[in-house]
Design a binder for these strands. Structure first.
Length: 910
RNA sequence: GGACUCUUAGCUCAGUUGGUUAGAGCACUUCCUUGACAUGGAAGGGGUCACAGGUUCGAGUCCUGUAGAGUCCA
């Protein structure tokens, strides 16, 4: 066995074990008869992405679940992969090309796509490589990419199928248009942001009443050339007599536009009159439709004003145009007022510029299986953790809108629709769309491609990732599905993701799964996952979101270099309570590293303490235990081990990961290292108790490594190997973790019964040692180890003390503890095992000592008064449960005894 | 405007069906290089649990309202 070094050096250990795991294909998800499956599909990071601290949290949690599943003997599968991320990737590559002064449109579609693929081959694997550095135990042989040929086939088949079913249609509608990316966006890709701008009051002169005006308020004067009407509420008496009149458009090409009535107008807003610009506002568009108004689109696709806006504005960017329009209106006297105005403006999520409502032809999807998607969550087939997100999910489904699935991009799945050569796409009716002589929709394209023109648009990225849980398992190819084990691994067990993509991804995956998996079978067989764990969002110390532009996101690779992957993992997990946003604190990561070092050194102590026994199995270690030589500490540490195993088990079951980390931290550091290892130092001196003590250490360390392994895989694998807990050449995950009851029954089989009385006595011993140390500290001899103590106590308690004397001396840092009938004038503390006196050779400051004792007496008197008041309250004794009342009585007795003892001590000082 | 979350020690946060004297990590003070670990050990200071009501024998915990912070949806 190699000797364990003084400090844990993570770098080489991580490198060594990850290489060994990969070489052995240790993470391969295999279908094994009789083994329960446990599967996860990774939320595919953008292929352009680099690892962020958010990924660290998300993937550490998935890795914990998968590794724990392996330890529990399940057949575990974690499928990794990346998302082609249409807009994001296209933008990145375009930006790269721009550095070489190359523009996308100059290259042309095919050449540009070649560049994107080249970029993807060069840089697209970075994030997956980074996940390996984190220790992610994905089945890398199954790595998926949403633009892989088989995946594309799945995406396009779904389009063809949903088109055939009538769920997909083409429509000219108002969409969210991004003037930078030059594509439509779905509602989910638009972020509302509060913006402070100007509200302009504009007057429109009535044609038949020169000098008389109708006033409207608008934030967008540059769209006035697109105005086709002024609308008021039909019951608005202010305008009743003017209905049907015409006003002059104050900007752009001269025109007279009607004053119309529509119930959509809010009488309370401004003057109650609204300008109607159907091309540039969704509500206006609808008003225009109802009144058969023309549509004047004054904006080009890139957000500049076009010739319809008039010569003064044409060619200007929309924001410059707004300024110019205001100036022109001011000059003409139409602008009567301008005020500062705050409102919400929709921004493009990717390009971060205001979107434009724009009337375009797009492909739309009526979602399938909406009702079943609600039912699956309501009935608990899919459980959300924390549960409250199900409300958000259901609310979205209740108000679901058709999904704009086409994007005017090149990078993505090109829509498998071909139009007959020469057909005017702008004029296609719904009937034309279903006419195979005019429009062809299929996976393979028409047999006579020369007569057809393929649709230019590609599909929204989410229209591929919504198939992720089954398209990654070979669907729709039967042979591939069999090979991937879809029958075994679908539905997946748990999805770990952020609540920010609950609509983008989670809800859509559920609907896709219900539509395509195992048609005709029950809901629970068709859903894509059983549990969804929503992580919190990681913020910086000021509570801001991590973002590239703020530069407030620490680089996980730097953190790994500094604290080790395990330190980072432990830190981030212990930082992340269920479902709350997290403020990132580097000191918690540091404490993760420190914990690893503590673990390392405890194992080092074990190794230095004595030869390794047969550690290869739990049973061989348990067989080395000698219950006849057990002392109270042995009972107590095994009791705590069982309790901690139980707690960790519960935490995994209830998705309380930080609680699991904290339970293990507390157990290992406080119970094992601070107490058991310290008392071991005395026990290891005695030939009688040494072997048993070493066996207990082995048992605790072995189980702790198993419990910790999912969180900190590298160091536990290394220590497991160094201490010989597994057969040579095997990995820790080839061992089955014993749960608490199994551990207990194994112990029982070897004649080991934990003694509650002994366990309780350890608490008294700990308190005794604590009181001794406090006395020393208060009398400035904390660091001396040659102090003597006296104790006045009962025979029974003295029996406990003397049985544990050598350990107590070590823990208290004392040379002797001697029993006396009576001690006078020495500093004293009252413990559950008797009154403890510090034997000070020097004179005691009687005055200070009296002050100290008086404080104790006063505090106890307060507590006694409180407890007595409670017990004398008839309502309490009548209604509180007996156990609580009994507890209060016991507490009172203890307080009174202690109080009496302190009073006696006080008197003895005179 | 609607929904949800949060407000506990200087900081960041736990606190699981209401039940002894409210905890952790970090920071802080004092002491200790004792043969696993100074990435460590020992002791300590620090909280009217946002506020106001209510339910209850008993409220950090349940209910109502108020204030502030945040997220999502319109």
């Amino acid at each position: 066995m190699a000797e364990i070094s003084k400090g844990y050096e993570s770098r080489d250990v991580e490198k060594k074990w990850y290489a060994a795991w990969q070489a052995a294909h240790a993470f391969a998800g295999k279908v094994t008869p009789g083994k329960e499956p446990y599967s996860i599909v990774i939320p595919p990071p953008n292929v352009t992405g680099v690892l962020t601290i958010g990924h660290v949290l998300n993937n550490t949690l998935q890795d914990m679940l998968i590794r724990r599943a392996r330890l529990e003997g399940k057949s575990a599968l974690w499928i990794p992969g990346t998302d082609h991320a249409g807009i994001a990737t296209q933008t990145v590559v375009e930006r790269e090309l721009r550095k070489e002064k190359i523009r996308r449109r100059d290259l042309g579609r095919e050449k540009f796509l070649e560049k994107v693929w080249a970029w993807r081959h060069e840089k697209g694997g970075i994030i997956l490589e980074q996940l390996r550095r984190l220790g992610a135990s994905c089945d890398w042989d199954r790595t998926q990419f949403t633009m892989d040929p088989h995946y594309s086939k799945a995406v396009l088949s779904v389009f063809v199928d949903l088109f055939a079913k009538g769920n997909i249609y083409r429509g000219k509608r108002m969409v969210n248009w991004c003037p930078v990316s030059l594509t439509a966006l779905s509602d989910e890709e638009v972020i509302m942001k509060p913006v402070t701008g100007s509200m302009y009051h504009i007057r429109y002169e009535l044609v038949n009443f020169p000098g008389r005006y109708v006033e409207v308020k608008t934030t967008r004067p540059e769209t006035i050339p697109g105005d086709v009407a002024i609308a008021v509420h039909p019951q608005d008496s202010r305008y009743a007599e003017l209905l049907g009149q015409k006003v002059r458009r104050p900007l752009g090409p001269t025109a007279e536009i009607p004053l119309i009535a529509d119930t959509a107008v809010d009488r309370e807003f401004g003057t109650g009159a609204l300008k109607i610009t159907p091309a540039h506002d969704k509500a206006d568009f609808e008003v225009g439709q109802r009144h058969h108004l023309p549509i004047i689109d004054v904006l080009s696709a890139d957000g500049t004003l076009n010739e319809l806006a008039g010569p003064e504005l044409a060619g200007l960017d929309r924001f410059a145009g707004r300024k110019k329009a205001a100036e022109l209106l001011k000059a003409s006297g139409a602008l009567v007022a301008e005020e500062v105005y705050a409102n919400n403006v929709g921004y493009s999520e990717r390009a971060d510029v205001p979107i434009e409502p724009r009337l375009t032809w797009q492909w739309w999807l009526r979602y399938p299986r909406v009702e079943e998607a609600k039912a699956a969550v309501r009935a608990g087939h899919i459980q959300f953790h924390p549960e409250r997100w199900s409300k958000v999910y259901l609310h979205w489904l209740e108000n679901i809108q058709d999904w704009c699935i086409s994007r005017q991009l090149w990078w993505g799945h090109r829509i498998p629709v071909w139009y007959r050569q020469g057909l005017d796409k702008e004029k296609l009716t719904e009937a034309d769309l279903r006419d195979p002589t005019k429009v062809h929709v299929s996976l393979d394209g028409p047999a006579d491609p020369e007569n057809w023109v393929q649709e230019d648009d590609v599909l929204d990225t989410w229209a591929s990732s919504w198939l992720w849980p089954f398209a990654t398992m070979g669907w729709p190819d039967e042979a591939a599905m069999k090979q991937a084990g879809l029958d075994c691994f679908y539905p997946t067990t748990t999805l770990v993701t952020g609540p920010d993509i609950i609509f983008f991804w989670v809800a859509r995956m559920i609907m896709a799964g219900l539509e395509y998996m195992r048609p005709g079978e029950s809901l629970d067989r068709r859903i894509p996952f059983k549990h969804v764990y929503f992580t919190g969002i990681i913020r910086d110390a000021q509570g801001r979101k991590m973002s590239k532009s703020l530069g407030n996101s620490p680089d996980p690779l730097d953190l790994i270099a500094k604290y080790g992957a395990d330190g980072l993992r432990f830190g981030i997990v212990s930082l992340a309570p269920q479902g709350q946003d997290i403020r990132f604190q580097e000191d918690r990561i540091e404490s993760g590293k420190n914990f690893c070092n503590k673990l390392w050194n405890a194992c080092r102590f074990r190794q230095m303490s004595g030869p390794a026994g047969d550690n290869s199995k739990l049973t061989t270690i348990v067989a080395r235990l000698d219950p006849a030589r057990f002392d109270a500490d042995d009972h107590a540490i095994l009791d705590r081990l069982l309790a901690t195993s139980r707690e960790v088990n519960r935490c995994f079951y209830e998705f309380e990961f930080s609680a699991a980390a904290q339970a293990l931290y507390g157990f290992f550091w406080n119970d094992f290292c601070d107490w058991y290892v310290e008392v071991s130092k005395a026990k290891l001196q005695e030939p009688d108790t040494k072997a048993n003590c070493l066996a207990i250490q082995d048992l605790v360390l072995r189980q702790t490594l198993l419990l910790l392994h999912p969180i900190i895989p590298f160091i536990t694998e290394e220590l497991w190997s160094l201490l010989g807990y597994g057969a040579p050449g095997t990995f820790i995950e080839e061992t089955r973790i014993e749960n608490a009851s199994h551990l207990a029954s194994t112990s029982l089989a070897h004649g080991l019964v934990l003694d509650p009385a002994a366990i309780a006595s350890v608490e008294r011993l700990k308190n005794f040692a604590l009181q001794a140390r406090v006395l020393k500290a208060e009398h400035n001899v904390a660091s001396r180890r040659d102090t003597s103590f006296f104790v006045t106590t009962t025979d029974a308690d003295w029996a406990v003390l003397s049985a544990n004397l050598s350990k107590l001396l070590r823990m208290a840092g004392a040379a002797t503890v001697v029993r006396r009938e009576q001690v006078d004038g020495a500093p004293a503390a009252v413990t559950q095992l008797g009154t403890l006196y510090l034997d000070l050779a020097s004179t005691v400051d009687v005055g200070a000592e009296k002050v100290r004792l008086q404080k104790e007496v006063d505090a106890l008197a307060r507590h006694i008064a409180g407890t007595e008041a409670r017990l004398s309250n008839k309502a309490f004794t009548d209604k509180a449960p007996p156990a609580v009342i009994e507890g209060a009585r016991k507490q009172l007795a203890e307080q009174q005894a202690k109080h009496a003892e302190f009073e006696r001590l006080l008197k003895s000082l005179g």
